[in-house]
Write a protein that binds this DNA or RNA. Sequence first.
DNA 1: TTTGTGATATACCGAGCGGTATACTACAAT
DNA 2: ATTGTAGTATACCGCTCGGTATATCACAAA
Lengths: 187, 187
Amino acid sequence: MAKTLQAKILAAASELFYSQGIRATGVDAIAKAANTTKMSLYKYFPSKDELILAVLRKRDEDFRTWFVAQVEAKAADPKDKLLAIFDVISEWMEIPGFRGCAFINASAEFPLKGNPVHQVSAEFYDKFQHYIAGLAAQYGSKQPVNLALQLRLLLEGAIVSEQMKHHSGAAEQAKQAAIVLIEGSVA
Amino acid sequence: MAKTLQAKILAAASELFYSQGIRATGVDAIAKAANTTKMSLYKYFPSKDELILAVLRKRDEDFRTWFVAQVEAKAADPKDKLLAIFDVISEWMEIPGFRGCAFINASAEFPLKGNPVHQVSAEFYDKFQHYIAGLAAQYGSKQPVNLALQLRLLLEGAIVSEQMKHHSGAAEQAKQAAIVLIEGSVA
DNA sequence: TTTGTGATATACCGAGCGGTATACTACAAT
DNA sequence: ATTGTAGTATACCGCTCGGTATATCACAAA
């Protein structure tokens, strides 16, 4: 409840960046949404660029924590967890305000190679893939890292498809494909 | 060679939008890159929004034409064509200046649901998927539409992964997964 | 009571944005 | 020779942007 001012700014920026786009969101709008002023904002974040990175880093933490908890709550053994991933993603897509993956979107908004946004986004998916690879190894996959990357591709593809057109059946087909790949990886 | 002024504007805008982002590209820069002036630009395109849509529609045509030609040149029978898709994508990713899929990027830059950019982008992938489904049906897949969507997800995922981090091995793993799914779809 | 500090309020800056107005040039068709 | 048309050149508009300056306020520590 008693969030620090810095946390309030971060939360407001995160929400606006995600719903409207980063470039489309002005610093004034963020300050107003956080019930503060631009001056205070610039005390905590030296520039909008730094704020963008801070927002992404926090989202990285929060989303992965939330996601893993969801999966662990849904299934007990490794194979079921691998499949539960797709159910969690499917439910996430149905949450009002879903507009795709914040990291994919950020990378698209700042297309230049060297931009730090790419590094943060890449790290997010690396960690994500690493979590999947762990489950795949427990499950007994012969090539857990490869399987993890394949499943990750299905997830990213489903998210992007669903962003462009809602209820495209992407999540369902991603899961069907995942079943084939998961079971094939132990044969 | 003797491109019309309109075509030159379209080409310049397409290039700049793709390499820098749409919002990040000003109308002045487009006019300059096309060796003309803003006045002429606004004679052909009533607004930047209309220009954006025109660029995406042209890219839709051009890319699909180029892509199909590449695939057809690489393979003769349906199964090989399905696999060749992943080789073409892989080669495309290695072209200097690759920055992901213009349609995914555009959708990310304009996240609001009703934006026409989403419709154009969704239509592009619908046509793309329809092409894959045709090959899948010729190949003898029992559920060609489902297989086509699954392969599309792998492709989108690979493109996005490669955009965030080059040489991630995404295209290769997408192809490996595709082989399993394609062969499984006739069993 | 003074002093230091975190936050506010507000006005401002230079730059870039999308888009327009006006006047001018080149050239082809009648 | 005249007229219409396609394109140029340039200046301008109102607005928003990221970022800063300055002055003030609330409050706790000393």
